[in-house]
Design a protein around this nucleic acid. Structure first.
Length: 115
DNA sequence: AGGATGACGGGAG
DNA sequence: ACTCCCGCCATCC
């Protein structure tokens, strides 16, 4: 198998956590990591998204903890993310999404991503 | 082997 | 609200 790197199980857990975010809602890298049992590894989430070998991965629903989009303003990626969010009814003001659209809090297990 | 990088986060000034 | 800084960690050079 190809050069295995980092626990592929960790990557799988992260992907599952990302897919668990329903349309019309968003979450943060840190929250996704925590939900995947990898608290503190927010950067690992970013790494997994960057690989992007998962077609059904709703990467656009993953934002910074402060509500900012993942990519810097002006980039094609940021525009695409904003477009996808808008398509799901998530308003983006000045490159950020309001806290009320986030499904992360203190205990993700309690929230259960429900809307 | 060592230093820099980054789709991060949180605290501090 | 913004900038700077440090912690974390897999990759990259």
């Amino acid at each position: 198998m190809g050069t295995e790197s980092t626990s592929s199980s960790a990557h799988a857990a992260i992907r599952a956590a990302i897919r668990a975010v329903p349309p019309g809602r968003v979450s943060s890298y840190g929250a996704i990591a925590a939900r995947a049992g990898l608290r503190g590894r927010a950067r690992l989430v970013g790494r997994v998204l960057r690989e992007g070998d998962s077609p059904a991965l709703p990467w656009h629903r993953v934002l910074h903890s402060d509500g900012r989009l993942a990519a810097p303003p002006g980039t094609a990626l940021a525009r695409e993310q904003m477009r996808r969010l808008a398509a799901e009814g998530v308003p983006v003001r000045k490159g950020r999404v309001a806290r009320e659209y986030f499904i992360d809090g203190d205990d993700l297990d309690v929230l259960l991503w429900r809307g």
